[in-house]
Design a protein around this nucleic acid. Sequence first.
DNA 1: CCTCCACTCGACCAGTGTTCGACTTACTAG
DNA 2: CTAGTAAGTCGAACACTGGTCGAGTGGAGG
Lengths: 219, 219
Amino acid sequence: MDSVWSRPKKAPRQTLTLGRIVAEAVALLDEEGVARLTMRRLAERLDTGSTTLYWHVRTKDDVLDLALDAVFGEVRLPSRDRPPEGGWQRPVRELIGGWRAALLRHPWSATILDRPLMGPNALERTEFLYAALSAAGFAAPKPAAYSLSNYVMGSVVMQVTWQDRDEGGTGDFLAERAARYPSLAEHGLDHAWDATFEEGLGYLLDGMDQALHRRTGAP
Amino acid sequence: MDSVWSRPKKAPRQTLTLGRIVAEAVALLDEEGVARLTMRRLAERLDTGSTTLYWHVRTKDDVLDLALDAVFGEVRLPSRDRPPEGGWQRPVRELIGGWRAALLRHPWSATILDRPLMGPNALERTEFLYAALSAAGFAAPKPAAYSLSNYVMGSVVMQVTWQDRDEGGTGDFLAERAARYPSLAEHGLDHAWDATFEEGLGYLLDGMDQALHRRTGAP
DNA sequence: CCTCCACTCGACCAGTGTTCGACTTACTAG
DNA sequence: CTAGTAAGTCGAACACTGGTCGAGTGGAGG
């Protein structure tokens, strides 16, 4: 007779895997931020000795690489019909928007972006971008893809740094210096992040579309 | 009689100042990178005990803030004639180009950009950008300024991370995975950084110009 | 039964940012 | 000229970090 009791052998506690490590790392980062991610703390949350982690992972940097790629994995890939309905910008907007959203959902990721993005999830998204731009008519999609990723990364970094550490003090700071920085004090303060992001993305896409038509000759 | 010997009182060794600390920090960062910047090492180069630094500076983060702002100080501000000859894009291109160059001259700065840029040098450059865009006709210059800074920051971060850690291995890595990432493998590899940057900046500025004319109604 | 091997972990190392309290100057007031 | 005060210096120490070493564990295969 088969019951829970007859097979107590396997895994009274789930064994440690790379997947569990990464998932716990993401959770810890979400809760406490990048400064508080420590191999020892991570190990403790996994009910393990800290040195055990080093059997699954070579360095702490590996953990961060994996955690970051996990975030990229949250970005849904738009469908790949070609030609896309709604114009070539449609899927690009979708990808970029999802990209931004994922990074903002895990603000620590913005402080970790200064490393090569070679994880499978990141590569898959980049590949999608290149493919979409090629299909749109860019013979050399690199500058377009480059611009778009730079724009997302940059905007997330900017938004996170200001949102995180601000808490109101900056307004006063700039107001006091309005004489020295008049335009900045007048226009720089309202943080309508989403709208600003969309507007800027519009600039980029419009410019790219223009370049496309200039090349094609079509209107 | 006045000679070197008659006034040995003052500063046989130059006293420690904030300026000297920052300058030495920048030098150390240039030579060895951000990971090797240590309060102790910095102090050693300044012929001081490490704890002395803490009289001039509250935390190591302060040092980084100051060093970063020193980099921004290297960016030459374009002349401020209005209207600028060569179109409104002229001074903007100049500022953005200088901005990028300064950051690339000190690659460590790219890994330090995840903090509020509130130093006087950074503020002055941002103010210039806002003013130039306002003068160009943007009633709300924020999205434009936001896009441009995001673009510079992002591109510097990307370039630095790839330039620093690559050393050739990435090409093979992507070539091996060409089946999975065909577009990326085909178009993603040539790193003509400057040209790519200029092209992308063109997209942005063109899109912004378009928005301007749409608003103005003029061609 | 023994051997092997994936896996775990306690002890330890060199090094980190930062604090504390004592010390040395250099000028100022009496 | 002396006493006092403030600016500036610094050695010792603290709690903590990422990482290594080698000794262990337990279960599967012969």
